[in-house]
């Protein structure tokens, strides 16, 4: 695939948002992923050209960050937190059962191209452990059964809504939002989950 004129113009637009264009590189790479499904050589070249860098320089940046993928990502990215707290609370078991259920290893995609499974680091939701992320949306207080249901729903194309977030879009659409192109869905979902309100709740009735 190659970067078309629309995408190229958007990449330029992102660079133009910053006092110095190179600051746009991270969001630009998110945009590349949203159109290419991964960071491709063509995407790297386009970023390099726009920013006046070498492809090697851009590549050096892309390889530093875990959200940038060299292998194609499936329609949905499912991240299971296996940092210590979630792991102990059951994240390890969830991850093991999902691998088995989906017949994939870490950072692999199901044969139907629907789900890429990965274990992720602490996602700042430890009070909802164990946590699963779908396209970087929160699925709180998961169990092996709920996580399997979740991936089954994703694979079947059923509508899925995050615990604290919006109706699930695709991974590519999520990457486009990260690049700075809003999808107008900030108003979906609650203000906060129960755990976020735990301190406030102790005051109720007092």
């Amino acid at each position: 695939m190659s970067i078309n004129a629309t995408t190229y113009a958007e990449l330029q637009e992102i660079a133009g948002r910053y006092p110095q264009a190179r600051s746009g590189l991270l969001p630009m790479l998110h945009l590349v992923q949203s159109v290419e499904g991964r960071v491709t050589p063509e995407g790297i070249n386009a970023c390099a050209e726009i920013l006046g860098l070498t492809a090697a320089e851009v590549s050096g940046v892309a390889t530093f960050y875990t959200m940038y993928k060299r292998k194609p990502v499936g329609e949905h990215h499912v991240g299971v937190c296996t940092n210590t707290l979630c792991a102990v609370m059951g994240g390890d078991q969830i991850f093991a059962e999902l691998k088995e259920h989906l017949q994939v290893g870490n950072d692999e995609t199901t044969a139907d191209g629907k789900v890429t499974l990965e274990h992720v680091e602490c996602n700042a939701a430890c009070d909802y452990a164990p946590v699963v992320m779908v396209n970087w949306e929160f699925f709180d207080n998961q169990t092996p059964a709920s996580a399997k249901q979740l991936v089954d729903d994703l694979r079947a194309g059923r509508e899925v809504t995050a615990s604290r977030g919006a109706k699930i879009c695709s991974w590519r659409e999520a990457e486009r939002v990260l690049a700075g192109y809003d999808d107008g869905r900030a108003d979906e979902g609650p203000s906060a989950g129960d755990a976020s309100l735990a301190g406030l709740k102790t005051l109720e009735g007092k």
Binding site: V120, A124, W136, A166, A174, V177, L178, D187
Partner: peptide, 17 residues
């Protein structure tokens, strides 16, 4: 903001707008 929190980024952007 860390990239792995899609909805938080939506909310921040909406608030800034």
């Amino acid at each position: 903001v860390r990239g792995e929190v899609l909805h938080v980024i939506r909310r921040l952007r909406a608030a800034v707008a």
